[in-house]
Structures are given as C-alpha cells and as structure tokens.
C-alpha cells in the first residue's frame, strides 16, 4: 500500500461521508443523481464479489463493506426515505444509464484480464465506474446551481481516482511485474470526465463564489 493509494481511498471515503452528511443534514437529495448512485452501488457489488473468497487484509475488507453499505444506504434514502425522496430531481435526472450498464458489460466480455465469472464482473465494474458520474454531471449542468456539499462531494469523488493514477504510476516503477492496464486506462477516462468540473470548481474556489456550471 503506498501513500497515493491510501490517500485515494481516504478521498473516496470522504466523498461518501460528504454525500451522507448532505443528505442527513439537509434531509434533501436535490442536485444528486439517483442514477449515478445506483450505478455506484452496482460497481461495488460487482467489484467486491471476491469479498467472500479472497481475504487481502482487514483494511481491504472493511473498506469494501463500507462502500457497499454506504452506496446502498444512499440509494435507499433517495428511493424510500419519505422526506429525502421528495427532493429528488426526478425530471432532471433523465440520463439513460442502462446504456452505460450494457456497454460496460459488453466491453467487459470482450476486454478482461481473464475470461472468468469474477474477472468479467471486475472488468465490468471498472468500466462502469469510469462512466458512472455522467448522469450526475448532466444533472449538474441542468440544475445549474450546486450547493456546497454537492460540489465538494463531486470534487472528492473525482480526486480519488486521480490519486489512484499516481498510485499506478508509482507501482509501475516500483514493482517488477505490475500491470493494471484495464484499471489504468479506465481511470484516466474517469478522471478526464471531471476535467471541466474541476475547472469550474477551482474558479469558484479562487473567486470565493458559488459554484456555477454553464447551462
């Protein structure tokens, strides 16, 4: 475990905590895409199939359980919680995310490290995570105004995979037979999707202004 990877995991954890804080503190999920949250729940459920078969470390197991539980809790809040669900922007959250699921699964069948049940689902989760933020970014463009916590949530969510890229570069040079091409390329695509958000997030931070995305 290197510092980049640990920082990435902590940043990812912070993003989840910020989102839970937003929903809990404001009892509202306005500005949050339920479709993106459903895609993340699917990403974790398909990526951590090895939870019961491969024990890596306590840290690894605990973090996997946290990500699975928190993503399911957020989807539950947005779908079922009587107060929170009322603030869901149903008519703005219209991205057809089933295409993302289908495309990721087809790609996983074609491009994977090994054609096995767990490996195909692992590759599927990697490809799906790379594009899972799209419904959220589209919703953000449409709703225009972004509350602070939502802005911070998306920032940390984008930053975590950028730190993972540094982790892969580090491991590439430090470990002899390290090759995670699937995760690395998908991670680059994933981080690139945040590029314009990062720009507007930086501008709002520099000008101490509210985060505004051009409509």
């Amino acid at each position: 475990m290197n510092i980049f990877r640990f920082a990435g995991d902590m940043t990812h954890l912070i993003s989840v905590l910020v989102l839970l804080l937003k929903i809990y503190a404001t009892k509202s999920c306005s500005g949050i895409s339920l479709k993106t949250q459903e895609l993340y729940a699917l990403v974790f459920l398909t990526r951590y199939l090895d939870l019961l078969t491969d024990f890596i470390s306590i840290y690894n197991t605990v973090m996997k359980l946290i990500f699975i539980a928190s993503s399911l809790a957020i989807v539950w809040c947005m779908r079922v919680h009587p107060i929170v669900r009322r603030s869901y922007d149903k008519d703005l959250d219209t991205f057809r995310h089933y295409f993302l699921v289908a495309a990721s699964f087809i790609l996983a069948l074609l491009v994977n490290e090994k054609f096995g049940f767990q490996e195909v689902f692992w590759a599927f989760s990697i490809y799906l995570e790379a594009v899972a933020i799209l419904p959220q970014l589209v919703l953000l463009q449409r709703s225009g105004n972004v509350d602070n916590l939502t802005g911070h949530y998306i920032f940390f969510l984008g930053a975590y995979r950028a730190l993972y890229i540094l982790n892969w570069i580090y491991r590439y040079f430090m470990e002899t037979h390290f090759s995670r091409w699937i995760a690395c390329i998908a991670g680059l695509v994933q981080t690139a999707l945040y590029a314009d958000f990062f720009y507007y997030y930086y501008i709002s931070w520099k000008n101490k202004a509210k985060l505004q995305l051009p409509a």
């Binding site: 973090m63 990500f67 982790n167 995670r180």
Partner: peptide, 10 residues
Amino acid sequence: DKDDDKHDEL
C-alpha cells in the same frame, strides 16, 4: 503466483 491476479486495490 496466486497473489498476482488478486485485485488488491479497491
């Protein structure tokens, strides 16, 4: 060996 093809990252 076995450890290599385990996905040790989250």
